[in-house]
């Protein structure tokens, strides 16, 4: 019985090849006859538009109120002058520049500081733009093995409006 099943399946495999060839021949015939038929070989590379994978690790958006929570390590992703003008209390600056990648040594140092602080959450805030530098720096930090990384939606402006953290002049 098993032998008959094997031979039946084997026979159907040959039939499958014949059917596939017949369908392919039909497809080619239709393609030749239709006005908008494709050339059999593309003349130019297809310009496929696939977004690149998001760089870095996982980062979760959060409201400014997250800064009120205990055990939060706060990172400011803005420029030095913005940081000097205002920053959330206890925030550590690590500027994210769109054009200049953050030095790996600085990221590793930041990851080490976070690990030593034994913080439960890492909250990064940036300029609140699109894309938000806080989000982008958060991804970089998360990619260095730090978990529970959040970025503040709306950036520094949202924190100031919310009054979530004591302001340091």
């Amino acid at each position: 019985m098993e032998r008959s099943l094997d031979s039946s399946i084997g026979k159907s495999l040959i039939e499958a090849v014949i059917i596939a060839l017949a369908a392919a021949a039909l497809a080619i015939a239709v393609n030749v006859l239709r006005p908008a038929g494709l050339p059999f070989v593309a003349k130019e590379e297809y310009e496929t538009m696939v977004p690149c994978p998001e760089p870095g690790g996982k980062v979760t958006p959060a409201d400014a109120a997250i800064l009120r929570e205990e055990g939060v390590f706060v990172v400011d992703a803005r420029e030095q002058r913005d940081f000097d003008a205002w920053h959330a209390a206890g925030a550590v600056r690590l500027t994210f520049d769109y054009l200049d990648p953050v030095p790996e040594a600085d990221l590793q140092k930041m990851a080490g500081d976070i690990a030593r602080a034994k913080a439960q959450k890492v909250v990064v805030y940036g300029d609140g733009g699109t894309p938000d530098t806080g989000d982008l720096l958060g991804r970089e930090i998360s990619a260095r093995g730090i978990r529970n990384v959040f970025f503040v939606k709306g950036g520094a402006a949202a924190i100031r409006t919310d009054g979530a953290k004591e302001v340091t002049p």
Partner: peptide, 11 residues
């Protein structure tokens, strides 16, 4: 690519 795009749907 084109040969695949032409034949596969008919199969």
């Amino acid at each position: 690519i084109n040969v695949m795009a032409i034949c596969l749907p008919w199969i």
